[in-house]
Design a binder for these strands. Structure first.
Lengths: 111, 111
DNA sequence: GGTATATTCAACTATATGGTTGAGAATGAC
DNA sequence: GTCATTCTCAACCATATAGTTGAATATACC
């Protein structure tokens, strides 16, 4: 939902959640099917899905008794752009990136 | 030092640590100077720097009694590439970055 | 209605994080 | 040697995370 840098990076910091996102690249999945390849309980997976949803990385839609999970890759955009600002050091976009940092991302979050 | 996806994403999930990395874009800094703009204690900043070091995102070198912190942007490569695997968004060139700015996509806020 | 399936909630444990303060170890200045 | 500076360590507190199990809810099937 929120999709701040905080929640997105935190969500991506867990290997189970990254694996879930990879699975959802293929297709939308029901919660039970997401949980299937993992050793842990369904409740644990349900919590992971909540964290991914809060970060905006997936959406969940209930149809009948089944809750479908759908990847929302756009939620990674902000984080991806933020990181790549450190990777690509052409002087051109370095300035722009620093302005971007100052005026948009970090400040917006700490207010 | 390790620079796994786990440690890198976890390190990036904190706004203080992201702010520190942004500061280090300019130049290497001593721990005291890194801590200066923040409200929190020096010890707290020292812990953040430890986490950034463990993630490989910075390196620290002691010269005299001063410990210098240096940005190591290559540590973000793995994480950056991982995210681009989801990339419906192309690697950020100036183009994509400017589009991002134009739409003043305050991705840091809701969705 | 009764039962099976899908998912979450509640309560609990263990561990990590983010912060504090105060003391301690190095180093540099005089 | 004395004193200040730089930085970390230790102990502590509050909160969040990652997992468990068992009960509860909601829907579908017959």
């Amino acid at each position: 939902m929120t999709s701040t840098l905080d929640t997105v990076f935190a969500a991506l910091a867990d290997p189970t959640r990254r694996a879930i996102l990879s699975m959802l690249l293929e297709d939308d999945m029901a919660v039970t099917d997401v949980a299937d390849p993992f050793e842990m309980s369904l409740a644990a997976i349900s919590k992971h899905l909540t964290i991914l949803t809060r970060a905006g990385l997936i959406s969940q839609e209930k149809r009948g008794r089944v809750k479908w999970c759908k990847l929302e890759p756009d939620a990674m955009k902000g984080a991806s752009v933020w990181m790549q600002g450190f990777g690509q050091f052409e002087p051109v976009n370095l300035d722009a990136f620093e302005r971007f940092l100052e005026h948009h991302l970090d400040t917006a979050e700490e207010e």
